[in-house]
Amino acid sequence: MELSELFIIALSAIFINNFVLMQFLGICPYIGVSKNMDSALGMGMAVIFVMTMASMVTWLINAFLLQPTTSNIFYLIFSPQEPPDLTYLKTIAFILVIASLVQFVEIVVQKVSPALYKSLGIYLPLITTNCAILGVALLNLEKDFSFIESIIHGISAGIGFTLALVLMAGIRERLELAPVPKPLKGIPIAFLMAGLMSIAFLGFSGLKLN
């Protein structure tokens, strides 16, 4: 595997296929937690962390429990004639893993670093239903990424999410003071801003990376 390939995956996940602005993943927290900069940063960090962990764990689950290969654990234990194809269980397996992972991270962070828990803690429960996390796991599978590629994709998707979130928070803090027509206040204007940012990010898709 070449370093340049990993670089391309990262760049593409952050800018060209930005999770929020180009692939519409994680819109709920994007609109919900972008009212001020501090919470945007907190949420962003929590998402980067969980996404990276989720990419690793779901990759392992998929490779050793779901895929019909000879290294499938069920095949090794029960040794049926053919390795079982359990890929149809991926949605249920991934969402359960992500939910328990988030819970686990919450407990560990609380024990290890109360300070970190104070800043990230409140965002963690929200992350389970953040479709960007399940989305990254499913995309890793769809794109047939290797273990390392999945991790890089996870981290950079998280960075891309944080970038979009922080940019938006910066704009919305100022928007509070702007004379916005009353029906457009709040969510509608946030969407219109997201539209303009999405136009800006559209410019990245012309990049030729190979």
């Binding site: 519409f24 969407f191 219109l192 539209g195 999405s198 990010f201």
Partner: peptide, 8 residues
Amino acid sequence: ILPPGAFL
């Protein structure tokens, strides 16, 4: 049809 159109 492009992503920005969805937001707008």
